[in-house]
């Protein structure tokens, strides 16, 4: 069920250049199960910015009634969010969207998780749930530069983990797709979240696996009413059939929508 909850800030810390990890607690955690969904955050009581900010859920902790989001401080909205201190409240609407289906990977199979930059966070909860189910997880995380790298050790604790940087200052120089193409193990499922060019490259890769991609788009309401975040479907790229990124997605199977 979608609820509007005033969550309490448990902690907030900067974990890489411009990257913040915010832990929140509230009854909304009872509604959170599937990885890859998002929350819609009102960052101010004022009118600037007007709209909520959609941010993916990076980790769910049912026992402590807490969840984690990781975001890049970039514009006015995320700057205001970065100012929130422990004990303050944050207006959260959610959980929203269709996330990653853990059911797509069977016990004993191999899932490869491919994340780029601020697309990495939702893959962490997915990795936890896949490992808990008995799926082998390989993570490939791509960043711009060493200063932008985060959560490598968290992913590494769940399985084989590769890091790439575009400028070669950390891990392997290059793109996540370089690693993905060179894997010895044949993945059964590929789950990915990151910048659109990366998702396109993975879709073009024609891997012999089920591929799921999490898309990003500017949103209005986040619940499917405003039609701000629609995209065309792959089989009708110029027609009037459509999917809404906020409610049909953000996770789609490769080939479902035109990216």
């Amino acid at each position: 069920m979608i609820i509007n909850d005033q969550c309490t800030v448990v902690s907030q810390q900067q974990i890489a250049e411009s990257i913040f990890e915010l832990v929140l607690s509230g009854k909304i955690v009872e509604e959170m199960n599937e990885p890859g969904r998002f929350v819609h955050i009102k960052v101010t009581e004022g009118l600037d910015p007007m709209l909520r900010r959609p941010i993916s859920i990076a980790a769910i902790n049912k026992r402590s009634n807490e969840f984690t989001i990781i975001y890049r401080k970039q514009g006015r909205g995320t700057s205001l969010l970065a100012n929130k201190k422990s004990g303050e409240t944050v207006d959260i609407l959610g959980p929203l969207g269709n996330g990653f289906s853990v059911a797509e990977a069977n016990i004993g199979e191999t899932a490869v998780l491919v994340g780029g930059g601020i697309g990495v966070p939702p893959l962490y909860e997915l990795a936890k749930q896949l490992v808990a189910k008995g799926v082998k997880v390989i993570s490939i995380l791509g960043f711009q530069s060493q200063s932008a790298v985060f959560y490598e050790e968290k992913f590494a604790s769940l399985g084989e983990t590769y890091v790439t940087t575009v400028d070669g200052t950390y891990g392997k120089k290059g793109f996540v797709t370089d690693i993905l193409g060179g894997l010895v193990v044949q993945p059964d499922v590929i789950y990915s979240c990151g910048p659109t060019p990366m998702l396109k490259a993975i879709e073009k890769g024609q891997y012999a696996a089920k591929v799921f991609l999490s898309l990003e788009e500017r949103m209005g309401c986040g619940i499917g009413a405003c039609f701000a975040c629609v995209c065309h479907t792959k089989d009708d790229p110029t027609g009037h059939t459509y999917k809404k990124v906020c409610t049909d997605g953000p996770v789609f199977e490769a080939g479902e929508v035109a990216i």
């Binding site: 910015p49 788009e217 949103m219 209005g220 701000a228 629609v230 065309h232 027609g239 009037h240």
Partner: peptide, 27 residues
């Protein structure tokens, strides 16, 4: 039926938003 305009379809300004959905509707 209408698909409407390409995205981005929304932008913000202090105290307001701009939309250009383009009358998307199922007909």
């Amino acid at each position: 039926p209408r698909f409407g305009n390409p995205t981005p379809r929304v932008a913000e300004t202090p105290g307001g938003m701009l939309n250009a959905i383009g009358l998307q509707n199922p007909g």
